[in-house]
């Protein structure tokens, strides 16, 4: 149990997926102008990462390993993730239309979000068991949600700030991200 707890804290705070591991930077910069869309994207990513972890783990250990074709890991995972995203989209559209209208536009972007493929590959590389993989997938997603939400809160204030012209847009977002990363790295000194 302690292990799982440490894994969760590590994924969310100490080795934050965005600030330390640099996964999912594209949506982190691209969809963080407004906090409500940022939270929508973060939730969609967390949801997909959790399910992707739960599906890619058995795919690797019950299909690829017995057949001796571990080298197809990348291609198998990305196909599974693409199908998964498509399926989630169709399912949400039919079953929970309100959630679909909130998350719908972010879903196609998630296939090419490297955080999702990244967490699937990391689970295998780090030798996590099934439970650890699912917890890690979920918490890494929550780490992404936290990061994109914090950045969006800062970026909302930029509308009222007199930012030098060349820094407007992505550069100032990167610098704000860097300062957030600095704050997160301070947490590590105590661990």
């Amino acid at each position: 149990m302690g292990n799982i707890f440490l894994l969760a804290i590590t994924a969310i705070l100490l080795e934050n997926f965005v600030f330390v591991k640099f996964y999912g930077i594209c949506p982190f910069l691209g969809v963080s102008q407004k906090s409500d869309t940022a939270v929508g994207m973060g939730l969609a990513v967390t949801f997909t990462m959790t399910i992707a972890s739960a599906l890619t783990w058995p795919l690797y250990y019950f299909v690829l390993v017995p057949l001796g074709i571990e080298y197809l890991e990348t291609i198998a995972f990305i196909l599974l993730i693409a199908c998964l995203v498509q399926f989630i989209e169709m399912f949400l559209q039919k079953a929970i239309p309100s959630l679909y209208s909130a998350l719908g536009i972010y879903l196609p972007l998630i296939t090419t979000n490297c955080a999702v493929l990244g967490v699937a590959l990391l689970n295998i590389q780090q030798g996590y068991n099934f439970l650890e993989s699912v917890v890690y997938g979920c918490c890494a997603g929550l780490g992404f949600l936290l990061a994109i939400f914090l950045l969006s809160l800062i970026r909302e204030r930029f509308d009222f700030a007199d930012i030098p012209k060349p820094f407007r847009g992505i550069p100032i977002a990167l610098i704000a991200g860097g300062l957030l990363a600095l704050a997160f790295s301070g947490l590590r000194l105590n661990f």
Partner: peptide, 10 residues
Amino acid sequence: PVGGFLILGA
């Protein structure tokens, strides 16, 4: 990582 963000932004 911090330096990565700051330098790329600059």
